[in-house]
Amino acid sequence: MVDRFPGYDVLAKADSESWDAITRRIVAERIVLTERGDVLSDRQRLTLRAVVDRITPQPPGRPPINATALLLERMAGADGEGFRHHRLPPLRAAWSRGLDALEAEACAHHGRAFDTLDGDAQDRLLRLAEAGEASDPAWGDMPPAIFFSWRLVPDVVAAYWSHPSAWSAMGFGGPASPRGYVRLDADRRDPWESSEYVERRGHAA
């Protein structure tokens, strides 16, 4: 998919009045965050990295999104998200078991580790889980479809779309405080917003 906003980077506004001090600080910390090794096993982390790549492919031509690191950070924290489906264990335990089960499915179906499969084969296993048709005993009493739709996908996309590269690729305005926006009508934009039309025309030329 062609980048709709190739010249646009929300980070270029980081020193402008669109970003306040706390936002600068927390985003700067976020984008350099690396994968912590104390949350999951090495094997689980390899599987997680592969899952994250299939659920949320990297934006071409932009700084890579460290969604796996952000997700591991979240698993390390004490917080849940305010609710837990009655068929799921707590956040970190659910991820641990879900990753083990995906790995077990890969071994059962292909005799190889999940992260060594090609993308299509990985997608087929993820779709099995999504449809509730994954049946390896490693899932235990945790329904694969519930894990997929209540834990796996929401958590991965929450990590991915917390990164400036994902904001830029969307043409999203990004942080906006203390300066917000002036032009609110359709097809109007402020000078500090992304420009889709100009970039599209430039691409076609």
């Binding site: 706390i22 927390i26 985003v27 917390s162």
Partner: peptide
């Protein structure tokens, strides 16, 4: 003015994030 970032992930500090079982 000093504690609220322009950021969804950070601002989850405003929510009741303790586990509640839903069924």
């Amino acid at each position: 003015l000093e504690d609220f970032a322009s950021d969804e992930r950070h601002q989850s500090k405003l929510y009741w994030n303790d586990d509640r079982i839903v069924e």
